[in-house]
């Protein structure tokens, strides 16, 4: 199913991860969908390639998911990568999106886990609403965006 993100919900997601970024004393907070599309980010995003981060995170989660199923687990809902300087905390929210928190020694794993837990619950509610909205008015936004598009417009994209 297509996921349609509107201004209102994106603002809510942005506010939430801005807050999480501060509360968890992290460097970067990032939300990606399970297919590797980036949804929103907070913190020092200029320092990294966010498109690659999104795709690799989704690949990582997909591989771990496969591993879980192989040994009879439903999912591994948290992945943690520890580095010399920076650490990456990855969690699956509402079985739908991925929340990534990058932090260094100004924070701690305990604090990040605590803040992520609270943030995840709120994020789950927002995404439940997005899915409801997409279901109840599936083409409301799309129609406006695609109605005017002709075959020529699509051809011209490649000329």
């Amino acid at each position: 199913m297509d996921l349609i993100l509107y201004d209102e919900e994106l603002r809510e997601i942005q506010n939430l991860i801005d807050q999480l970024h501060v509360d968890a004393r992290s460097k970067i907070v990032f939300v990606v969908d399970k297919n590797g599309q980036q949804i929103a980010g907070a913190g020092d995003l200029g320092s990294i390639d966010t498109t690659s981060l999104a795709s690799l995170t989704a690949g990582n989660v997909a591989a771990t998911d496969g591993l879980a199923k192989l040994i009879g687990e439903k999912e591994f809902s948290i992945l943690f990568h520890e580095g010399e300087r920076d650490n990456v905390h990855i969690s699956i929210v509402g079985n739908r999106v991925i929340l990534v928190v990058i932090f260094d020694d100004r924070s701690s794993l305990g604090l990040v886990r605590l803040r992520v837990k609270k943030g995840s619950q709120e994020l789950t509610h927002i995404f439940d609403r997005i899915v409801e909205k997409t279901k109840s008015q599936p083409s409301a936004g799309l129609e406006a965006a695609f109605a005017e598009i002709t075959d020529d417009d699509i051809d011209n994209l490649f000329s």
Binding site: M1, L5, L10, G36, Q37, A145
Partner: peptide
Amino acid sequence: MAFINYAAREVNCKI
């Protein structure tokens, strides 16, 4: 299963 970001007016497709 395209991802349509209405806020950023962006369509992301996967091939």
